[in-house]
Design a protein around this nucleic acid. Sequence first.
DNA 1: AGTGAAACCGCACTTTG
DNA 2: CAAAGTGCGGTTTCACT
Lengths: 154, 154
Amino acid sequence: MTTRQLDNIDKSILRALQQDASLSQRELADKVGLSQNSCWRRLTRLREDGVITGQTVRLDMQAVGLDLTVFAMVRTRHHSAEWLERFRKSVLAIDNVIDFFRIAGDYDYMIKIVARDMNDFDRVYQRLIKENELEAVTSYIAMEAIADSRNVPA
Amino acid sequence: MTTRQLDNIDKSILRALQQDASLSQRELADKVGLSQNSCWRRLTRLREDGVITGQTVRLDMQAVGLDLTVFAMVRTRHHSAEWLERFRKSVLAIDNVIDFFRIAGDYDYMIKIVARDMNDFDRVYQRLIKENELEAVTSYIAMEAIADSRNVPA
DNA sequence: AGTGAAACCGCACTTTG
DNA sequence: CAAAGTGCGGTTTCACT
């Protein structure tokens, strides 16, 4: 929440860590041109201030057998607070859902789904439309992932 | 490429590391119920086999000042191999592009873009349509990120 | 189970604005 | 003067053999 101002060194730390978070403190310090100590202090602050919220591994989607990606654009029928809350819970309960955004335009929500194959996706899709009364769903099947989850330009 | 078969222990390792890749070997071994040694061997193999392709940090998009997300659906006009190659290069050269998928349906590409604000996004948008002759672009502005880049269900 | 390396953190000093 | 960086230390913890 603390909208802390990031200087260029902070940004270069974030860039380096996005590219490879397994860097040792020495390597990181060298890369950004700081002493080990002050680099460590900055890193600690970036974590404390909630700029860096965690650390994850990148997985090969093909290797884990989840190389089907679908973007589902959803238009809802109901708009009461309770209905929307149930809808959110219902969507978030599906762990194939990677992204879930409320959007502006001729659709209300955009859901990025990963699945093992078409059958698997259909299971998710059926669940989605059974649990929620939706006005329209348009699914865009991904034919090719040209870029997936790239680093953000910090 | 080696479509290696992952057993339940491998999957629980992947789940644990997706949630927190800063886990020490001992913590990880405890979590998945393995000896430190065999856990380390599995981890090494998962990296060698390309299942785990890297390690990154999760950033708070608001804290880094990139809390505007836009999904741009693109329909292209040209379809020659050279044109498409130039188009890809043009899109990938924009570092605000986080996802870039070729899709099936009434649009050809789906581009997830992050930006500092509307002006910043407009700059990206103008660049996109100036550098490439497109037939149609529909931009869905994200009003709320209910879930962004969740863990994949390994 | 052992070992070398790395993370972690305090401290005194220097630099920059 | 205050804020941030440097260099050096020691202890603890970890990765890897």
